[in-house]
Design a protein around this nucleic acid. Sequence first.
DNA 1: AGGCAACATAACGTTTACGTCATCTAATTG
DNA 2: CAATTAGATGACGTAAACGTTATGTTGCCT
Lengths: 129, 129
Amino acid sequence: MSDDRDRLYTVTELADRLGVTARAIRFYETKGLLSPRRAGSTRVYNYRDRARLQLILRSKKLGFSLADIREYLDLYDPAGGQREQQQLLLRKVRDRIESLQQQQEALDSTLSELREIEASACRSLQQRK
Amino acid sequence: MSDDRDRLYTVTELADRLGVTARAIRFYETKGLLSPRRAGSTRVYNYRDRARLQLILRSKKLGFSLADIREYLDLYDPAGGQREQQQLLLRKVRDRIESLQQQQEALDSTLSELREIEASACRSLQQRK
DNA sequence: AGGCAACATAACGTTTACGTCATCTAATTG
DNA sequence: CAATTAGATGACGTAAACGTTATGTTGCCT
């Protein structure tokens, strides 16, 4: 079907496709967010790597730090099939959910404060002319 | 009325009152956000300085950079730029609102994904024993 | 063979918002 | 008067997320 799945990319190819620099991609790798295979010393990215990078970029655009993203990705990974692993995963997921809920609340209140400021700035501009 | 208006503060007094460090306050000064008078070499802050610093801190909490804040504060000086100031404020606030809304969406979708992961981890633990 | 284009690593530079010394000086206090 | 205490530079440190050389290596084309 989608021959896309079989495509392989070099850093710069992938970088161009996704609109980032090769440097950035290599940097993500040093941060443990990516781990492409190698052909000699050259990085070779496959479909999964591409998808992973896209996920990273989306998350970034939306304000998550690379550390955040990494933690998040780690929750997806192999995660081992063992009971111990599953329990650990569950705990981590729950912790993460809790902390994200707190972020959500903080975000909400910041937003409503900003909306009030916006409204009052609007009024004051409307009135004065 | 409010004798508060006559109070003067040293850096550390002001810092303690507003819950920041003296270092931070001095730093804001180097960035042109504050310019207290001096008694010899010692900084002396008055009511206005205090109000200004409070404004700075509130803005920071809402996610604006010191550069943003400075831009805004700079428009206050000429006794007439009020209108421009309000317009700038409105622009910046709206930008910020937009970016926070995007973050909010990202957070929401991340949260629901995590909840699915949680559910499936739960099931898999339940089933296996 | 020669040479460019693309890849790689290493390492220093940049911005933001301060923290953390190290030193110095002026003013208060026992 | 000596010792604290406060305040003032000045300079280096820090974390995040890369940008920017510098330098080296390799594969491919003519």
